[in-house]
Amino acid sequence: MSLLEIKNLHISIGDKAIVKGFNLTIKPGEVHAIMGPNGTGKSTLAKAIAGHPSYTITGGDVILDGKSILAMQPDERARSGLFLAFQYPSEIPGVSIANFLRAAVQARMAEGEELDASGYYKKLYSKMDLLKIDRKFTSRAVNDGFSGGEKKRCEILQMAMLEPHFALMDETDSGLDIDALRIVADGVNTLRSGPLGILLITHYQRLLDYIVPDFVHVMYDGRIVKSGNKSLALELEAKGYDWVKQEFAAANA
């Protein structure tokens, strides 16, 4: 069975410790929401697990399907079944979404194996139909001049095409108006019916009205300080993060 285990993970940027002992295990089909105030290490966690070179893992381990991924390059981690949906996706001028995804699919094939172009397009179009994305979309250059909503749809389409085992979704709701948020959430909900495990990072509760998580974790000062189900998110919405901060301070006093 596929499993993503994050064990006592410590992450630094330069000399500054950001994530300090994070623990979480995600099983297939589960959606875990990570909430917390700004600056508690949520995005750092996602990017470091995906292998961003600016972050240093100073302790702990990330184990995907029984194997530590920490020594792997970001592309090896991706090919092993990990996907990071970016908060701020990069623009790649001149490279169409169709060609970009084609290269990504080709990169997953064995050396010497040739991609079957018609099969590829058939799959791409079926995923686009599933996500209700217009056919014209994939002839545009990746994220080049896209609106916030288009960028996030582009992330969801990539996630659908690359069929990861686990997706780390970093602030997927940031910069989206309510219509765009609904469209993106519909996409995620369509994909979560399978064995996909999701780590959903969000600052606001409103995303969780559309993507209902199985578990909610509150992150503060680089680790999980509280876990619960959907109702925890509602409690946070009502009380704000100060409540968590106070509890945390009291526990550490």
Binding site: A50, P74, A78, R79, L84, I92
Partner: peptide
């Protein structure tokens, strides 16, 4: 940029 390369790598492409 480094971020652009990382973005593509996170989709499975080598550097």
């Amino acid at each position: 940029s480094e971020d652009m390369i990382f973005y593509m790598q996170s989709r499975g492409l080598t550097e």
